[in-house]
Computed example of a mutant assay.
Amino acid sequence: MPNTQVRSVKSTEGVNRPKGSPRKIVRRFLLSLLTLLVLGMIVFLLIPSPIEPAKWSAPTAPSFEESGPWKQNNKLSSAQLVTDAPKSPEFITFDKEGQLYTGDSDGKIYKVAFDAEGNPQKAQVFADTKGTPNGLIFDANGNLIVTDVKKGLLSINPSGSIEVLADQVDGKPIYLANELDIAKDGAIYFSDTSNYGSVTFKEIAENKPHGRLLKYDPKTKQTTILLEGLYFANGVALSVDEDFVLVAESYHYQLTRYWLKGPKKGTSDIFADNLAGFPDNITRDEQGHFWVGIFTTRLSFVDQMHSNPWLASTMAKIPQSLLSGASAPVKHGLAVELSPQGELIGSWHDPEGTLYGITTAIKHNGYLYIGTAPGGSLGLHRVLLTK
């Protein structure tokens, strides 16, 4: 019996003895966690990338600190809210009576009237495309022509009835109808941003052109392709003489010119390059000058990624939901004015970032009206133009 009792005590002591000190337990846990992270990283690096990026050495971005037309100012910092009914008023246009129209990302198109003193009244819903209306301009018949990224090219009559003008070209879908302008003869020039069909970080990382410039002829009801191979085709605007049409290539910081008349008809060239950010929409004022909204100033990481295909292909593996911050607009409002020849006349800034993510800048009745897109500041604003 004594020997049995001794063995029993030893067995009990073995069960109750601590397996290790708290410090050792934490050390084992951290080592296990590190092992899992290393294994996870190895697996992530071995997964094939969904893209084969093209290498590109982006030009050095213009400086906001140096003197010249890019020099930073606060011209947009005093912006007045016109309406907050549309959260993301991508584009802005006016009818013959001076009423403002803009769309929102939820499909609604709003109308804003002004009183005798020019004060904006409460926004009213004019139509609902059930899509995402971006560009909108009135044609000669009073119909609102709309480029909707989900529905294609639309026409909305004064009572709000919607007709699809085009959602295909050459038997294939119009993937992402974005912006437009209308010529005096009724021809509609508009951009099909990308055959990706949506805005995705993978396309930025891939750095290959997937956009197009299209033309719709209301007489024949036919849509044709004018230009292909554009780096995220965006804003569109005709020159005052309609001898060329511009289309913004957001991902290469440039505006491309397609000639409609003259000896260069049917060819294209660069109208303005090395902009200080991603150009979005283009509007033309009464002087024939072009105004361009800059959705975000240059992102140094993106420029570095373009010069490093391995980094780009690796970033493309990360789920889009985790990369929303990587391509979010910098909180620095910016719009630029260009001459009819493409020379930079001036830039308008809000360095405090109260107004940012700018897509549209359009002059009307002594004001510069400002539109934004999702990711930017909310609501439609305007800034009084100084003479």
Rank of each mutant, 00 (worst) to 15 (best):
I362P: 01
E242L: 05
L322R: 05
D217S: 08
V15H: 12
F244A: 06
K96P: 00
Y251T: 13
F91W: 11
E52S: 13
I156G: 04
D104Y: 10
E343L: 09
L213E: 03
L226H: 00
P48G: 10
L323M: 15
A140C: 02
A166F: 11
G366Y: 02
I174T: 06
A187N: 15
A361N: 05
D84M: 03
V125Y: 08
E97V: 01
S77A: 13
I174N: 05
D84N: 14
F91G: 01
T35Q: 07
D285V: 09
D148P: 04
G379Y: 11
Y196F: 13
L385N: 06
F91M: 08
N207Y: 04
I42P: 08
S88G: 00
V15Q: 15
E343P: 08
V236P: 02
Q320I: 04
K387A: 11
F232Q: 02
M41C: 12
D192S: 06
Y231G: 03
D280Y: 02
A127I: 09
Q222F: 06
T360C: 07
E52K: 13
L31P: 00
A113Y: 00
I51S: 10
E337L: 03
T93M: 09
A116E: 15
E228F: 01
L213Y: 01
P351T: 09
V15K: 15
S8Q: 15
I162R: 08
K75H: 13
